[in-house]
Design a protein around this nucleic acid. Structure first.
Length: 501
RNA sequence: GCCCCCAUCGUCUAGAGGACCAGGACGUGGCCCUUUCAAGGCCAAGACUGGAGUUCGAAUCUCCAUGGGGGCACCA
């Protein structure tokens, strides 16, 4: 039905094919991103296909997480759920008839067979193999059944069976991987994989081949863990007489703190004692922005060139080249994401940052109006690496019930409580008399006071900082006080003076 | 156990036989700036896993070893 003589000249059609079994993992997001970049670079089509053939692991929360996540990252799909397309349906659960039809076709052509083995027998076989130190795998018991025996088993099991692929028993299969060139497998090591499960639904092996064919997929970009089943897929294409898409296996992302690939279980603690986000929504909740995540992800396993680390998606699309993907797995460099996110936050238009900050403050229980946030942004923009950092940095500007710092924290180095109190009293007096509440006006007055009292600027400013913000670290003092407002600032200073009594 | 993939600073990477006593970035350390914290500027330390080949010449090619990773389901 598709006359594909020259695969390389076909229009580029790639798919991201997740299965809705849980939250959206950052590694999957990277696979999606690379597919998307590849499609956009070649002016091709990016397809989203939902591989929901595992009824046991299906998770109803997964779909919204997935779709929202992709959209949040800006990875719009051209065909798939909610947008449709000519090659649908895009849910595998709605394509059962197609898989059954082609599985039967294989059986009819003696390229696959019905297997009646029970799970118990399969487990037994595995046990035996383990005991005998043999390679695990199906023993092909049902591959060569005599017709009578087959009929007997069919009746005995009430017709329940799976369909298995008849792998060639000899020879080798060579798969051409775009990143790794030819990979050759010994067919004797390969399995008679299940194609159609006893519930009538396909396994990945059948579904991906049938769908990729009928959806006219030109290139498969999938994770490295599929390498070992690639030769079976290749044989399946051959059995069907279909041309196999070009294929590239993307490197895995490894766990930052230990061994193995990055997984949900990696969400432990890194050396710095910080929680490592692994799921896309965790990155979102931690206050990372999508542009930073996209930029960050393109730097893992791929590099822009020209010694550049920061670039726009448009630039990435223009340059993206599969051949530059590094086949080696890489540790997830979280610290670099913090830096990059900070870069994006600093370069962002202040209005936009204010808008992004609003929901963050509100979720944290603050009442944060946009115009107020807009005043605050200039004070914190260069000081935050994630949106959430703004909470610690500027929360004091939004609290309705101010909780003062313990009095001992008010006392600067080389001063005692009495001296601090005296300094604050004098400062209060001067601030109260100021003609206006601009930061410059405050600063001029306070610098004069420093002179007058023979203090160091850091001492007075430090005491005022703790008094007005209840923090040892804050945005610049006078700008903070300006935004805080005269009354609130003075009230907090009075509170501090009283606490030093 | 078997099969497969991979291998450059702590980490992410550049490097496709001579331009490399190996470049960039994050992180780290130091200095400058400075009211705290950042940001910014300058500087520094820091790597071709090992061994055999091939070659006039190897981080780059080949082989072996080692190390890391992935896979061996009626999960994807």
């Amino acid at each position: 039905m598709f006359d594909v003589s020259e695969n390389g000249s076909l229009p580029v059609r790639v798919r991201f094919a997740p299965s809705p079994t849980g939250p959206f993992h950052i590694g999957s997001a990277r696979t999606a991103l690379f597919n998307w970049l590849f499609a956009r670079h070649h002016g091709g089509t990016f397809i989203l296909r939902i591989e929901d053939t595992d009824r046991k692991r299906f998770d109803p929360d997964a779909m919204p997480l997935l779709l929202d996540g992709l959209r949040w990252l800006g990875l719009e799909w051209d065909e798939g759920p909610e947008v449709g397309g000519e090659y649908g349906p895009y849910f595998q659960s709605e394509r059962s008839a197609l898989y059954q039809e082609w599985a039967e076709w294989l059986v009819e052509h003696d390229l696959a067979y019905r297997c009646y083995c029970t799970e118990e027998r399969l487990a037994e076989v595995r046990e035996r193999q383990k005991a005998a130190r043999q390679d695990p795998g199906y023993d092909r018991h049902c591959r060569t059944l005599a017709p009578e025996e087959r009929a007997r088993l069919h009746a005995e099991r009430g017709g329940e069976h799976v369909i298995r692929f008849k792998m060639p028993l000899e020879g080798t299969t060579t798969v051409h991987d775009i990143l790794r060139d030819d990979i050759t497998f010994d067919n004797r090591r390969l399995q008679d994989l299940v194609l159609l499960k006893s519930d009538g639904l396909p396994t990945y092996h059948l579904a991906n081949v049938v769908d990729d064919h009928f959806m006219a997929i030109s290139h498969i970009l999938r994770a490295e863990e599929w390498i070992s089943s690639a030769p079976v897929h290749k044989n399946l294409y051959a059995a069907f007489g279909w041309e196999m898409p070009q294929i590239a296996h993307l490197p895995v992302i490894l766990n930052p703190s230990g061994k193995g690939k990055l997984s949900k279980r990696s969400a432990g603690f890194t050396e710095g004692g910080r929680k490592v986000p692994v799921l896309l929504h965790e990155f979102q909740e931690a206050g990372y922005v999508p542009e930073a995540i996209v930029n960050f992800l393109t730097n893992v396993g791929w590099s822009f060139g020209d010694d550049r680390e920061v670039f726009t998606v448009e630039e990435t699309i223009a340059r993206f080249d599969l051949k530059r993907v590094n086949p080696a797995g890489s540790v997830f460099p979280v610290e670099k994401l913090d830096w990059l996110n900070g870069v994006y936050l600093r370069d962002m238009a202040p209005e936009r940052l204010a808008a992004l900050l609003q929901p963050v403050f509100e979720r944290a229980g603050y009442r944060a109006e946009l115009d107020r946030l807009t005043q605050v942004v200039p004070l914190i923009q260069v000081r935050i690496k994630t949106l959430n950092d703004a909470l610690d940095m500027a929360g004091f500007l939004f609290t309705e019930q101010f909780v003062p710092a313990p009095p001992e924290q008010l006392v600067p180095k080389k001063m005692d409580a009495a001296a601090t109190r005296a300094a604050l009293e004098r400062a209060l007096e001067m601030l109260e008399g100021l003609p206006d509440w601009r930061a410059e006006t405050q600063e001029a007055a306070m610098r004069a006071l420093v002179e007058e009292m023979g203090l160091k600027a850091g001492q007075l400013f430090g005491a005022l900082r703790v008094a007005t913000t209840a923090q040892a670290v804050s945005p610049p003092l006078f700008e903070s006080m300006e935004v805080l407002g005269r009354e609130a600032s003075l009230a907090r200073i009075r509170l501090a003076i009283d606490s030093l009594a």
